[in-house]
Design a protein around this nucleic acid. Structure first.
Lengths: 246, 246
DNA sequence: GGATCCATCGGTGTCGACACTATCGCACTC
DNA sequence: GAGTGCGATAGTGTCGACACCGATGGATCC
């Protein structure tokens, strides 16, 4: 998975294709990718003058790009105040995962109900590739494959509203998940969860699939929370928050 | 419930307070209310020049207001094309209600778990007032009370993400619900559903509350679908679609 | 020495203008 | 008479300018 691909996936999740001008899309992708990759720190100012200089445009398309990211929860905007990279509280994160769990359960149930055997086979193939990536320890590639797997599932289920909401929630958790998958052992657990899920789908056991995906979500949340815990306790004594130059 | 109140509720659902300039808020409220009340027909063009003339501003705040409505699903925007009032397909509507059902079930379960007795008492009070409005046949007032009831429930549960998504789904269905509640007898059924739900909450029966709200949602969808059916079959022979002058 | 006020600066919101393009009617073709 | 291509028109996306406001730092006061 190259940077190129990252931007393609991001563009899909942000629904930029045909919905926005290429210029706006480019800015939204750059800022969005920056937030997810951690290049732009949570809470950091995103003033439109700097960004417009960087992209050699006026502030109008920059504002529009930031509004796109705002609606996906990656950026916070208040009238007359500088836009900032979103900094969800501990509670926000729990809330997001709670909703996500509910909707992923729904997704799994619908998947079992509606997916053809061929489609499940295709998903199984993806999971096997992910197993390979996990074994190699290629976190980034695994990470984005995971995103694409969920994307494909929502596509198969065919509920556009559900897909849109899950995409949005995925984006909100992407920066967190990126951290959490870095934790040793987490990758292996994650791929195990996916394999169990695929098996439940193959056996057409909707109840089990729902329960498995809910469990996996709870574990993901726990992992994220532990990660944040470590990060915060590890930061207080020594390091200050990194504030890279825009 | 006056027009004033309508705009206040709309402003809350669109989260305009402090997030957008008053000018943008004003435009978004006017267009949003127009869509919900049916003054602006589904599929109708919303060109920014006309709107900017109407509000005596430039096109910049108009564009911004339309983007706000786009993210709530009331307006559809494609690059280089005129924004249009959203025209959800039959399938889109089913999808929206399906997700809504799932999340309302979640809401009911959380409500039973977390609401204090006082809060449930307050909700009960609201439902009793709604009974009064239903008996009087005051559709508009009932309609907005219903919206506010759900708003209050999400507030009590305290999951900001859930509240935001449910508000957004509520907006998408508002124009439909407005039609569907007009149907004779529908108001009485609706208030019955609410009363049963409150009773389940008082008895702290989460399972039942979830099931009741899910059932109510299914019935609401059916009512909306029948309404659309009638409308379409009734339109073909005689009347053409109303296209009021912006 | 710390809190408070104030001026300055930097950034946002809005505007009117301009280039570019989707749209629509019209002439033309078959 | 229906379909196709073209030109006029209307509307979108972007720009640079300007007025206004929030943030920042220094002077003042206690």
């Amino acid at each position: 998975m190259t940077d190129q691909d990252t931007h393609v996936v991001l563009a899909r999740l942000l629904r930029l294709r045909d919905r926005r001008e290429p210029l706006v899309a480019q800015i939204a992708e750059w800022v969005g990718a920056g937030i997810i990759e951690g290049r732009l720190a949570a809470g950091q100012d995103l003033n439109s003058v700097d960004l417009s200089r960087r992209f050699d445009t006026s502030r109008t398309p920059v504002r529009e790009a930031l509004m796109v990211l705002e609606q996906e929860g990656l950026v916070e905007m208040k009238a007359r105040r500088r836009p900032r990279v979103a900094a969800p509280s501990r509670q926000d994160i729990r809330d997001i995962y709670q909703v996500r769990r509910q909707l992923l359960s729904m997704l799994a149930a619908l998947l079992v109900e509606r997916a053809t055997d061929e489609e499940i086979g295709e998903l199984r193939g993806r999971v096997e590739k992910m197993r390979g990536l996990a074994d190699e320890g290629d976190v980034d590639a695994y990470f984005w494959s995971h995103v694409q797997l969920q994307e494909r599932m929502t596509e198969i289920v065919g509920n556009a509203t559900l897909k849109q909401i899950l995409d949005s929630l995925a984006l909100r958790t992407l920066m967190l998940r990126h951290l959490s998958l870095t934790r040793p052992g987490r990758l292996a657990y994650s791929v195990d969860d996916q394999e169990r899920l695929m098996q439940a789908c193959e056996e057409r056991d909707g109840e089990l699939a729902s329960a498995l995906i809910a469990g996996a979500t709870v574990r993901a949340l726990r992992s994220v929370e532990e990660q944040i815990q470590e990060q915060e306790s590890g930061r207080k004594p020594s390091r200050r928050r990194r504030t890279p130059s825009t």
